[in-house]
C-alpha cells in the first residue's frame, strides 16, 4: 500500500498569549465535529422525550395561543392588522430561536467543562453547533407558521408571500450573530461569576418585553424609539414581519444601525471568548 506523504507539517506554538483571533481555518477543520455535535444533541433530545421533535411544534403553538388570549383578546393590543395568532407566532418562533441559542451558548463553559478539561478543540465549535441545532428547531417551527398562514389565507385573511421570503436566512444569520456575540460574552462572565447565570434567565424575559415580540413597533411612540434602536433584536423581528406580511414600511436606518450593533457585539463577544477560552479551566 502506498503511504501518502504529508506535505504540510502542522506546527503549534503554545505561549501565554491568546490564540490568533478567530482562526477560521481551524474551525473549518473541525466541521465534522460541529456536525456530529448537532447530530448528538438532536438524537439525544429525540431519544429522551416521548413526543420528540413535536415539542418544537407544541411550544410555539401553546405560546401563541396564550398570547392571543391574553394580549389579543383581553388586553386588545394592536397587531398591525395581522391575525393575532399569526402575529404572535411569528414573534415567538423568532424570539425562541434567539433566546434558546443565547441560553445554551452562555452556558458553554459550565456545561462542557468535563469535555473541555480533557481535550482540545476550538471551543467555538460548541456555540456554532448550538446555533445550528436551533436553526433546525426554527426551521420546523417556520414550516408550521407557513402552514398556519396558508390556513388563515383560505379563511379569508389576505397575505402576500413573495420573493422577500428569501431574505429570512439573512435575518437568521444576523440574529445568530447577536446570539453568539452576547452568548459568548455571557459565557465568559458566568463561568466565573455563577450568580450572573441566574440573572440571565430573568434578563431574557425582560428583554422579550422590550423587543417587539408581542406588539408591533408601530405601537411605540417616538419618545421611546431610540431605545429600540439600541436593541438590535427589535429590527430583526420587525424585518421578519415585514418580509412575511409587508405590514409596515421597511425602515432602512433602523436596519443599518441594528446591523452595525450586531457586528460590533459579535466581534466583541468572540474577542472576549477567545481571551477566556485559554485559561478558564484554571478558574472553573
Amino acid at each position: 500500500m502506498m503511504i501518502k506523504k504529508k506535505l504540510q507539517v502542522e506546527t503549534i506554538i503554545i505561549t501565554s498569549k491568546a490564540n490568533s483571533f478567530l482562526n477560521i481555518n481551524e474551525i473549518l477543520k473541525y466541521r465534522d465535529l460541529i456536525f456530529l455535535l448537532v447530530a448528538r444533541d438532536f438524537k439525544v433530545f429525540y431519544k429522551q422525550t416521548i413526543l420528540g421533535p413535536f415539542w418544537y411544534i407544541l411550544q410555539p403553538l401553546l405560546n401563541s395561543a396564550v398570547f392571543t388570549v391574553i394580549f389579543g383578546k383581553i388586553a386588545s393590543m394592536p397587531t398591525d392588522e395581522i391575525p393575532p395568532f399569526i402575529f404572535y407566532m411569528s414573534g415567538t418562533i423568532l424570539w425562541s430561536y434567539f433566546s434558546s441559542s443565547m441560553m445554551s451558548i452562555s452556558q458553554v463553559f459550565t456545561s462542557n467543562k468535563d469535555l473541555f478539561s480533557k481535550v482540545y478543540f476550538p471551543r467555538l465549535a460548541v456555540p456554532i453547533a448550538n446555533v445550528i441545532i436551533n436553526y433546525l428547531q426554527f426551521f420546523i417551527q417556520f414550516v408550521i407558521l407557513i402552514l398556519f398562514i396558508i390556513y388563515f389565507y383560505f379563511n379569508g385573511s389576505s397575505f402576500s408571500l413573495d420573493i422577500k421570503l428569501l431574505l429570512i436566512p439573512l435575518l437568521l444569520i444576523q440574529l445568530s450573530m447577536i446570539s453568539i456575540g452576547f452568548g459568548c460574552l455571557f459565557a465568559s462572565i458566568t463561568y466565573k461569576y455563577k450568580d450572573l447565570a441566574l440573572l440571565l434567565g430573568f434578563g431574557m424575559q425582560l428583554w422579550m418585553f422590550v423587543s417587539p415580540v408581542i406588539y408591533p413597533m408601530s405601537m411605540i411612540s417616538d419618545k421611546y424609539i431610540y431605545f429600540y434602536i439600541l436593541n438590535p433584536v427589535s429590527s430583526v423581528i420587525e424585518n421578519f414581519r415585514y418580509v412575511l406580511f409587508s405590514n409596515s414600511d421597511f425602515n432602512l436606518g433602523l436596519t443599518l444601525l441594528s446591523l452595525f450593533f450586531s457586528i460590533v457585539i459579535f466581534i466583541f463577544g468572540l474577542y472576549i471568548f477567545n481571551k477566556v477560552e485559554k485559561s478558564f479551566m484554571d478558574t472553573i
Binding site: 507539517v9 502542522e10 506546527t11 503549534i12 503554545i14 505561549t15 501565554s16 480533557k118 482540545y120 484554571d282
Partner: peptide
C-alpha cells in the same frame, strides 16, 4: 494539560511539530 492546550502557561513557550 498545557501540552494538550487545555490550559495555557504563565510563561515560556512550547513548539510542537506535527
Amino acid at each position: 494539560k498545557i501540552l494538550s492546550r487545555i490550559t495555557s502557561p504563565t510563561e515560556g513557550s512550547i513548539k510542537i511539530t506535527g
